[in-house]
Amino acid sequence: MNIERLVTMANDIAAFFASEPDPDAAADQVANHLRKFWEPRMRAEIRGSLEQGGNGLSPLARRGVERL
């Protein structure tokens, strides 16, 4: 999996949920979307990326990935 592409996708998802004023709820919504629509190896890749610093992830995308 191209991690740059996955990071872009995660950031796009986070950009939609960023309008949620409660940061916890926003992160939950990002994580929930990833769980419902991302195939396990994609989630594993993005989690792995986060463990290595999460380069490129927006703050909200990062919080969402942390909850996977």
């Binding site: 999996m1 191209n2 592409r5 419902k36 629509f37 991302w38 195939e39 396990p40 190896r41 994609m42």
Partner: peptide, 18 residues
């Protein structure tokens, strides 16, 4: 019970050999 790959994800997975 887990979601599968979408078409563009399939292409990415093909390129990484999985």
């Amino acid at each position: 019970s887990e979601p599968g790959l979408r078409i563009p994800n399939m292409f990415e997975a093909a390129l990484d050999g999985s």
